[in-house]
Design a protein around this nucleic acid. Structure first.
Length: 422
RNA sequence: GGAGGGAUGGCAGAGCGGUAAUGCAACGGAUUGCUAAUCCGUCAACGCGUAAUAGCGUUGCGGGGGUUCGAGUCCCCCUCCCUCCGCCA
């Protein structure tokens, strides 16, 4: 959500930012509406002022037992104008709110401008790619051959884009989540949080998933949305709050299932468990002081990278282009893990700084120590990491010719000392 | 599912038709060897105004309608929270 006053002062920058995201210019239209709304507000306030003054006189007159009929008649003449002004005020501000709530965030300076992932910039690469003296398999080939990954069973239950894991593989998934949580909570200062997986509309609005992306969400018959990421809940923890400046930053982490309809992804990544309607993810959220969000963003990305490093998964960090970023983000790093079976890097984490965009939608503020009023916090979110995709990366990077795969050393304590599966 | 109670500023909490009490916290100022205490002010959003302040004004008592010269207060609808009963992990 945008600050109208910022658009007033920077209409060209506003449109340029939208253009970078493939959205047509809006400033002229918005500012015209804004001028109209303010003009109406001013004249409405004058009428309200008169009504209040007259009403006070009426009250005073009546308490003295005097006749107030003249005054009552006078204030009665204001009635139509008052009602019309109030109605117009409602309509105009609602129209503006609707327009603004459907516009994506501005890319930060330094974000490459481009239509899609082609324009992303690789900023770092870490880890040597594994070399195999056999043809590397994809995770589902390994998992199915071991009898531990069962797409048929899942489809019997739920159809396409679900999976059943069994035995050691199911345990590996659980171990990965525990491993990630332990590091982020014990070493990086995130507070482990157990959260609802079903949320109401205003919560989905706060993070920017509604109103524009309702099709991506699952909705229950009684109006709940299933969370597509814990970002939605963790970020909304500060909705309608006024935080003390000294309490910032707040850092939350949660391990949750994520539910996505994948409405626009028909035919993409249909094999395996890369793209599912349901998957586990460990999600970090930071609520930051506006002056520190850039720094916090780098820190958060480093936290996610630490997991990949300790698991020995080669990866690269991509600075997303304006067109590839999510709706609410102003700057995003994707971490792409190496997938030997596919012979390419695939997204395994996405870390975004949303600036005050979500904070405005949620009314999440802080009280500065100096100065009057309140300011909006900045919100950041990042996967640390997507558990399902990390599982894939482990299986593929550590695979053996015989169809089994090794457990990364750091993870072995979480699997009762197991060193390999299969 | 049944019955009842509630939603007021950062927090607590009164007001039940006539300009939103009071307390706590926070911030600014005054005072003061220092700290504490005390006193005064500020403390949300928006509009006008300004270089920025100041200043003036409007709104704000969960949301939306209505009655009234005037609504936190009365009427209607909705949302959420709590308590008890029933059912249940």
């Amino acid at each position: 959500m945008y600050d109208l006053r910022w658009i007033r002062d920077n209409p060209d920058a506003f449109d340029a930012g939208l253009a970078a995201r493939g959205v047509a210019p809006q400033a002229q239209e918005i500012l015209a509406q804004d001028v109209q709304a303010r003009a109406n507000r001013t004249s409405l306030q004058e009428i309200q002022n008169r009504r209040n003054a007259l009403s006070k006189q009426i009250g005073a007159a009546k308490s003295k037992g005097e006749n107030a009929d003249g005054l009552i008649a006078e204030v009665g003449e204001l009635k139509d104008a008052l009602q019309a002004g109030e109605e117009l005020e409602r309509d105009l501000s609602q129209a503006l709110r609707e327009t603004l709530s459907g516009l994506p965030n501005q890319p930060e300076p330094g974000v490459p401008v481009g239509a899609d992932e082609e324009a992303n910039i690789e900023v770092r690469r870490h880890g040597a790619l594994p070399v195999f003296d056999f043809e590397a398999k994809q995770h589902f080939e390994i998992g199915e051959a071991l009898g531990l990954m069962d797409f048929e069973a899942a489809s019997k239950l739920s159809g396409a884009r679900f999976v059943v894991l069994r035995g050691a593989l199911a345990r590996l998934e659980r171990a990965l989540a525990a491993f990630m949580l332990d590091i982020h909570t014990e070493e990086f200062g995130y507070t482990e949080t157990s959260v609802p997986l079903l949320v109401r509309e205003h919560t989905a609005f706060g993070t920017g998933n509604l109103p524009k992306f309702e099709d991506d969400l699952f909705k229950t018959t009684d109006g709940f949305y299933l969370i597509p990421t814990a970002e939605m809940v963790l970020t909304n923890l500060v909705r309608d709050e006024v935080l003390a400046e000294a309490d910032l930053p707040l850092r939350f982490i949660a391990h949750t299932p994520c539910f996505r309809s994948e409405a626009g992804a028909a035919g993409r990544d249909t094999r395996g468990m890369l793209r599912q309607h349901q998957f586990y993810k460990v999600e970090m959220v930071s609520i930051s002081h506006p002056d520190q969000s850039g720094e916090e963003h780098e820190r958060m990305t480093a936290c996610a990278e630490a997991i990949l490093q300790r698991l020995g998964i080669p990866y690269r960090a991509m600075l997303l282009s304006s067109g590839d970023m999510g709706f609410s983000a102003q700057r995003t790093y994707d971490l792409e893990g190496w997938m030997p079976g596919q012979d390419c890097y695939r997204e395994i984490s996405s870390c975004s700084n949303c600036g005050d965009f979500q904070a405005r939608r949620m009314s999440a503020r802080f009280k500065p120590k100096q100065g009057k009023g309140t300011g909006f916090v900045h919100t950041l979110n990042g996967s640390g990491l997507a558990v399902g995709r990390t599982l894939i990366a482990v299986m593929e990077n550590y695979q053996f010719a015989d169809g089994g795969f090794a457990i990364p050393e750091a993870l072995q304590p979480y699997l009762g000392g197991m060193t390999r599966i299969g």
